[in-house]
Amino acid sequence: MTALALPDAVLPDAPGPIQTLIAVTQRLATVIMAENDHLRSRKRPADARPMIEEKGRLAAAYAREMEVMRKNGGVRAFGNANELRILKRETSLFQTALDDHRKLLERARAITEGIIKAVGDEVTRQNQSAMGYGKNAAPPRQRSAQPTSLTLNQVV
């Protein structure tokens, strides 16, 4: 998978801090939406590795840009009303993509935990010794549990 192209320039001027933040926000939202589509299509998680790596780089760039602006008077000190309006719109789209991403990850985690619990319960059930009495009404001797083999089918 190749890296996704940056969106067309939103503002024609040389990129300043606001324009850079807008571009990073757009790109980060695009990568997160692509990852969301990947999660919805139930493709192999390993295939999303390039998106995850790019998301990490973009998140670090986003944090750096926000920190620069915070230390220097906030976003209002760097942009005009039009730029701030564009940033607000892009940030809203970004937040929507993040909320969707969180929901997808929570759902995947719940499914995974359910599968792991079901496998553990089945292994426990198979390893339980029969309860009751043995010869001459004596409790049965405890035998050490035999290892339970577990086979998982893997699609490559």
Rank of each mutant, 00 (worst) to 15 (best):
S144A: 09
L21V: 07
D13E: 10
Q128G: 07
G73L: 02
A14R: 09
K103F: 13
M69Y: 01
G56L: 08
A97V: 07
I32H: 05
A97L: 05
L105F: 08
G73H: 00
I52F: 12
R70S: 13
L6C: 06
A46L: 15
E67R: 10
L21D: 01
V10P: 03
F78L: 06
P12R: 03
T148G: 06
L104D: 01
R64N: 08
E90R: 02
V24C: 05
R89S: 15
T30F: 10
R70K: 12
A108G: 00
E67N: 07
Y133V: 15
A14N: 08
R64M: 11
G56V: 02
G79T: 05
R27I: 06
T96R: 03
L39C: 00
T151E: 06
R102M: 09
I32D: 03
R42A: 09
T148E: 06
V119P: 03
E106Q: 12
L93D: 07
E65I: 03
N153I: 15
L150K: 05
L98Q: 14
L104W: 01
Q95A: 10
G134S: 00
D8R: 07
N136K: 06
I32L: 11
G56I: 03
A108F: 04
I116A: 13
T20P: 07
A59L: 06
T91H: 04
N136E: 05
A110Q: 08
A29N: 02
I111P: 01
E113Q: 14
T91K: 03
T2S: 12
D47K: 12
Y62Q: 10
L4V: 02
A137H: 08
K135I: 11
Y62C: 04
G120Y: 13
A61K: 12
L21G: 06
T151M: 03
T25L: 01
M131G: 10
I32K: 07
L105M: 08
T30H: 11
I115C: 05
I52H: 11
D100F: 08
Q146M: 12
A138C: 08
A29F: 03
R89G: 13
R107Q: 15
M51H: 04
A138D: 05
Q154L: 15
V156R: 12
L150I: 11
L98A: 14
S144K: 13
S149M: 12
T124P: 09
D37Y: 12
A60D: 15
L84V: 06
A60S: 09
E67Q: 09
A108W: 02
A3M: 08
N36I: 00
P147F: 10
T25M: 00
Q95S: 09
D47W: 15
E90T: 11
E113K: 13
R107M: 15
P12I: 05
T124K: 12
G132D: 01
M33G: 14
T96Y: 03
N127I: 14
Y133W: 13
V31K: 01
D37P: 11
D47R: 12
R109G: 05
R109P: 02
S41M: 14
G132L: 04
D99E: 13
L93R: 04
I111C: 06
A48M: 02
I116K: 12
T112V: 14
A34F: 04
M33S: 14
R89E: 15
A110V: 08
T148P: 05
T112G: 14
L4S: 01
I86H: 00
I18E: 00
N127C: 14
N72K: 09
Y133P: 10
V31L: 07
R107P: 07
R27N: 11
K135A: 08
E106A: 09
G56P: 09
